[in-house]
Each structure stands twice: as structure tokens, then as C-alpha cells.
Design a protein around this nucleic acid. Structure first.
Length: 218
DNA sequence: TTATAGATTGCCT
DNA sequence: GGCAATCTATAAT
């Protein structure tokens, strides 16, 4: 698949995937530094890209809200593997969620991607989401629906467990994260969304003021 | 073997 | 704001 190297998305031609060392750290640090990075997807001959504007850290054995809290199982095996791999799981019978494994092999931990700001391939994302909007003309409230939320962004980028779970995102492939030198101005930490255990821990990170952050108000 | 909760979303009132 | 949809993993019977 060498040929793919020469066909990168517009504006990201000189960028290469974040190295494995980036992910081989505490999930809280990885989550903070992933804000502003760009998730890039190759789908049916086209490039989809979105900036990460919201994510959450899940720690492992000491974090009761984490899938890894109860030890290694068939479902969460990726979390105990090497850093820089996609962990995709199916939730509520309807939705996929995208995570990236952190820390050395044998030590669990990950970052959940909760919202993206669409950058490229927007027409295709609209189709994948089954929406009937014209991005340039739609109201901000509708446009947000494209990638604001963990299930929505997976649908918009055609991410599924069968296709992506366990995928190495540090290698040149159809799912990578790159740094385009964008640096968020303001960030904030808040409690994680939808968790009942360790609900008070402020392990959700957002780019303050970005309209694609999930929830009623950015 | 059966029950229930879940790192969510979208439709209905 | 309430709640159904719909599959998986795990707990309870």
C-alpha cells in the first residue's frame, strides 16, 4: 500500500502519524495533548479528517469507570497491548466508540475520542451519518450533529469494531492521527460524561469555546 | 439460562 | 425533559 503515501488529504501532505512514544504515557497527559490533533481516515478512496476537540482519559486498574478495571478480557485485550492502537467497542446496541491505547504493553489505559471538528471529506461524512444537510448552508446546530459525540464521530468516519479494533495507528494506514501544528488557545478539564463510577474525577478535556464540543453548550 | 446495566443517540411529548 | 432502540458483557439465578 505504498501508493497511499502519495495520496494524502489536502493540507496534510507533509505530516506523518504521531509516534508510538506519544501514546506510551499516562492517559491524562495523552488526552490533554491529543486536543487539537487531527484524526485522518481513508475511506473509499477519499480522505476524511477532523480535529479532536474533546476526549476523556481512562486509567486502568485504579479507575472503576474503565473497561480495563476488571482485568484483561477478550473485549478489552487491546488496552493491555502496546500503545498506539485503536480500541473500538460497541455500546447501547447502536454505537461504536473510538479509543487509543496508552502506556506500555501489559499496562492498561486509553483515551476516548468524544468530538471532532470536521476538516476534510465533509460531504462524505454527511452521507455516512445519513443526514440531509448542506454544510455551507446549514445552521450550526445541525452541523454540530455531524461529529459531536463519540457515536456520531465513529459513524461519520466509518469506524467499526470489525474494521478498526486493534489497528496500529502509528503505522501508515487508513486510520492515523497527525499534528498540523494547531495549538488550542484555551482548554478545560471536567467530569467524564455518562459514567456512574468515579463520576467526580475531572478526566474529560475540551477545547473551550469550540462549537463541536458535545453537550448543550460548548 | 435469564436479567440488567451500559464511556449514546434521536424521537416523542 | 423523558424514554425507546438494540447488542454485549457481565452478574445473578
Amino acid at each position: 500500500m505504498r501508493a497511499e503515501v502519495g495520496r494524502r488529504p489536502p493540507g496534510f501532505g507533509l505530516l506523518s502519524p504521531l509516534p508510538r512514544t506519544f501514546y506510551n504515557r499516562d492517559p491524562r497527559k495523552v488526552a490533554k495533548e491529543l486536543l487539537g490533533k487531527v484524526l485522518v481516515r481513508r475511506e473509499k478512496g477519499r480522505w476524511l479528517a477532523g480535529r479532536i476537540v474533546e476526549d476523556e482519559a481512562y486509567l486502568g486498574a485504579n479507575d472503576p469507570a474503565a473497561h480495563a478495571a476488571m482485568g484483561r478480557t477478550a473485549r478489552n485485550a487491546v488496552l493491555f497491548g502496546p500503545p498506539g492502537h485503536a480500541y473500538v467497542y460497541f455500546i447501547y446496541g447502536n454505537h461504536y466508540c473510538l479509543n487509543f491505547s496508552c502506556q506500555p504493553e501489559g499496562k492498561a489505559g486509553c483515551v476516548l475520542v468524544r468530538a471532532l471538528e470536521p476538516l476534510a471529506g465533509i460531504e462524505q461524512m454527511v452521507r455516512l451519518r445519513g443526514l440531509r444537510i448542506e454544510p455551507e448552508r446549514s445552521q450550526p446546530r445541525e452541523f454540530r450533529m455531524l461529529t459531536s459525540g463519540p457515536g456520531r464521530l465513529c459513524q461519520a468516519m466509518a469506524i467499526s469494531r470489525a474494521r478498526d479494533n486493534g489497528k496500529d495507528v502509528c503505522a501508515q494506514g487508513d486510520l492515523v492521527i497527525v499534528d498540523d501544528r494547531y495549538r488550542p488557545q484555551r482548554m478545560a478539564a471536567t467530569p467524564r460524561v455518562g459514567v456512574t463510577k468515579a463520576a467526580e474525577e475531572k478526566l474529560r478535556y475540551v477545547i473551550r469555546g469550540n462549537p463541536f464540543v458535545s453537550g448543550k453548550r460548548a
